[in-house]
Amino acid sequence: MDEASFEARVEAEEKVEPTDWMPEAYRKTLVRQISQHAHSEIIGMQPEGSWITRAPSLRRKAILLAKVQDEAGHGLYLYAAAETLGTSREEMVDQLLAGTAKYSSIFNYPTPTWADMGAIGWLVDGAAIMNQVPLCRCSFGPYARAMKRICREESFHQRQGFDILVTLCRGTAEQKAMAQDALNRWWWPSLMMFGPNDDASPHSAQSMRWRIKRFSNDELRQRFVDVTAPQAQFLGLRIPDDDLEYDETTGHWRFGEIDWDEFRNVVAGNGPCNAQRMAHRRRAFDDGAWVLEAAEAHAARRAARQAA
């Protein structure tokens, strides 16, 4: 097996399983991408988790708890998928805590209001779904299978977010203003989730050839805008883009230029909450170390007793 025959296999839509031969670069790309995805799910629990204790109705509290719990589960499926490529969960978590691994920078923005719960579900999960559905057909078996599971659960996430906003937009003037404010803050960061423009994205071509990526950044971003703009109209909210306009001839929505400086800054770790998110993760890890040590000590002692 060599790179050429590997690419031919993958082009023929054959799946690659963990013990199959694969180019080293394919393995590295996947470990990086899958672990980044896993880290994002885990870090993503923080901005939303902060509203569980203040959820304004018991029904919303239950739904939010279930959603955030799903995210922990998603992180687990993804770490497990990455581990099949020869890395360990410990290694990946160490990289996250050391700050050498990346996670989706969307989670470096704060969630100052309840309406942010709606905006995150509608926009952030919406963008994630758009990225993730094609991954269900990714060439690497464990990742594709994890994504299928995740996608099934993710559609509930988006719907509950939209539902929160529908209720707010039909509520008091203050609730509607809260919803508009959240949209104003989350719109552009959600568009940035699709990554740089295609011409500024060097790795995309190889990822497409390896069937890890199915659609280009710009294609997915356009699809997202086309789908979401009418939803904003339904809510009676204004998307914060003066250039946003429906084009009758193309059937697409034209939209304004992204602030790539902000994008680069947040990706580089200077987002509003980077430090806070990392400190939170480190603290949970440090505070819990004694628990894992105790669990291992107890299991070892029990195994020794049974063997005796």
Partner: peptide, 12 residues
């Protein structure tokens, strides 16, 4: 088969 996880013993 649905995936894998980490645990210290069978019960966990």
């Amino acid at each position: 088969h649905v995936g894998s996880l980490h645990a210290v013993d069978a019960e966990m």
